[in-house]
């Protein structure tokens, strides 16, 4: 949208900044060349700009570099893309809590699709189990138990509430991020630039839904398990010390596909679609079902709706 002159200026500034940083980084690396300073320092990703400020060419460079890097690392043909949002699309998600049986199929489908660390364990979806009786006081998160372990589910007199990122319209996490490493894209997906996050975890303190997970240790996914279809802002491998979370399976939904959790659900409790399309599944359920969002009093305006089917 910027004029050619602005564009030029931006590039000139970018070039001098990169040079400055390169010098600074070399110095820093010399100082930090201590033993045990983890893996080889990746200068290219260190000098990379914020995704929102990169030119298309710069993004292509990054995608190319990462595709090569991961292909080599995992011995597979890995492609990293950065497919942008479609016109006139804002995503919404629906979850039928009258159907969910708490089987956690979605949790593990998500782990596999989105290359979440197996060890140390990271899971974007968390399923809370509630006593039906407790819910007569309203859904109080303190009554929820994510660690239930029954022979079979649903357990008697229990109901289940799966949670992940709510992709809030007014997301507190993006507001507090000091570096602007997380933001809401035009299609409503709250994304994270994993190369820009500094790991301060302010967003985790700000998120009312516990959606954000931190890489406390070095994340680990075996070459065998890695999903080679990656999106730069979605399921590509994360590094230690950054925050990650559900991206509505950005690598799938921007190509028109359903999210992985939805396809894994054995009871069809999960619904997904375009909130701007009056004929979409999501608009149908908003119109015809009783829906609610969690912690509505916080005015975060989630785009993740629970409903009674």
């Amino acid at each position: 949208m910027s004029s050619p002159k602005q564009q030029e200026e931006r590039e000139v500034r970018g070039a001098s900044r990169r040079e400055f940083l390169k010098t600074a980084a070399t110095g820093a690396a010399a100082v930090m060349g201590a033993p045990g300073a983890a893996q080889a320092f990746d200068f290219e990703s260190f000098l990379q700009k914020n995704f929102r400020q990169m030119s298309d060419e710069e993004i292509d460079e990054v995608l190319d570099r990462l595709s090569r890097k991961y292909s080599k690392k995992y011995g597979k043909d890995v492609t990293v893309d950065a497919v942008g949002p479609m016109d006139d699309v804002v995503y919404g998600y629906g979850l039928d809590i009258s159907r969910c049986i708490g089987c956690r199929r979605c949790v593990y489908a998500c782990v596999e699709e989105n290359n979440q660390s197996r060890d140390p364990e990271i899971q974007w979806i968390r399923v809370l189990e509630f006593e039906r009786e407790a819910a007569t006081r309203g859904i109080d998160m303190e009554d929820g138990n994510p660690y239930y372990d029954h022979e079979t589910v649903p357990a008697e007199d229990k109901f289940y509430l799966p949670m992940a990122c709510m992709h809030c319209e007014d997301s507190p996490c993006t507001n507090v991020c000091p570096t602007g490493a997380t933001w809401s894209d035009p299609d409503g997906i709250v994304v994270i630039d994993y190369d820009w996050c500094i790991g301060c975890r302010y967003c985790m303190a700000a998120c009312p839904y516990g959606a954000r997970k931190f890489n406390w240790g070095e994340p680990n996914v075996s070459a065998e398990d890695i999903n080679p279809d990656m999106h730069l802002l979605g399921n590509r491998p994360r590094s230690r010390g950054v925050v990650e979370k559900c991206s509505f399976c950005i690598q799938r939904v921007r190509k028109g596909r359903y999210p992985a959790c939805l396809e894994a659900c054995p009871v069809g409790a999960r619904k997904f679609g375009n909130l701007l399309d009056p004929d979409s599944e999501i608009r149908y359920l908003l119109k015809h079902k009783r829906t609610f969002v969690l912690k509505s009093e916080l005015k975060t305006n989630p785009k993740f709706f629970y409903f009674y089917g």
Binding site: I101, R104, P120, P146, Y147, D149, V153, P154, G217, P266
Partner: peptide
């Protein structure tokens, strides 16, 4: 495809394993 017409309610399933508790994620892994 999903419901047995003679007995339509969903049959219970074995759940996938629960998540690890935070104290079980250690410097030595899970």
């Amino acid at each position: 495809s999903c419901h047995n017409p003679h007995s339509p309610p969903f049959k219970p399933l074995a759940p996938e394993p629960p998540p690890l508790r935070p104290e079980n994620i250690t410097p030595n892994g899970n």
